[in-house]
Design a protein around this nucleic acid. Structure first.
Lengths: 115, 115
DNA sequence: TCCATACCTGCGCAGGTGTGCAGCTATGCA
DNA sequence: TGCATAGCTGCACACCTGCGCAGGTATGGA
């Protein structure tokens, strides 16, 4: 199998066959991108705190999240907007209170690994 | 239990008791930081590609990683330096070839979730 | 000794990201 | 109707990060 793209087929390899294995292991670039984007959402301490709180204690209001994390309201709001745009959390409006929860299965799997 | 720090004890809560649950759920800030740093290492498509290649095909040389990912050598080198400084990968020198592998258990767990 | 190779490092730039501030919208109650 | 509260948004700023380029170090062979 020659999985090496033509534009770099002339470069010297150390272990030629393992290069092909590596390319197969990496797989679809779009898929890799999807996962790196997911990891990026968890890469901020504030966002990770929000997600851990939501994941382990269930639906929470924005104000309560702000108090629990020590962030101020706009910061929480913007973080949740980002997470909502990515489909990681969803908010349910009850009167003037919005309670958020984690809805992405892949992210829940990652949060479960945070011991 | 009153887990809310004094500096924000006067703020209004929506669900008072759940705030305490949330604070307990978040846990030690240092621990959260450790994990967000870990996620940050996986948040770059190039670094994630390198780690997936190393994780699924075993030890690989820098040049081969460069060919497999389409990066050029300095970029691979710098990425590996970052990962090595974080204790995620380790390199073994054989002559003038350095083969890297993933040595961090937590990261291996995360990589295993990348289906 | 000389050279090619494998890898590493420093530097500078472009691009993205988190945050605070001020102000806006919308809901509920008196 | 008037007001306080919950939440959202826009903007400007400082900060960080990834990358390419050029050049440096170390190993192995002619």
């Amino acid at each position: 199998m020659h999985l090496v793209p033509a534009d770099r087929a002339d470069r010297r390899t150390i272990d030629g066959h393992r290069v092909c294995d590596a390319i197969a292991a990496i797989g679809d670039p779009g898929h890799v991108r999807t996962w790196s984007d997911r990891f990026a959402l968890l890469a901020d301490p504030n966002r990770l705190s929000l997600l851990l709180a939501l994941h382990r204690t269930g639906p929470l209001a924005v104000s309560d999240l702000a108090i629990a994390t020590g962030m101020n309201d706009p910061a929480v709001s913007q973080a949740l907007r980002l997470l909502r745009a990515a489909g990681v959390v969803a908010g349910e409006k009850e009167g003037r209170v919005v309670r958020y929860r984690v809805v992405d299965e892949a992210v829940r799997g990652l949060l479960a690994q945070v011991s």
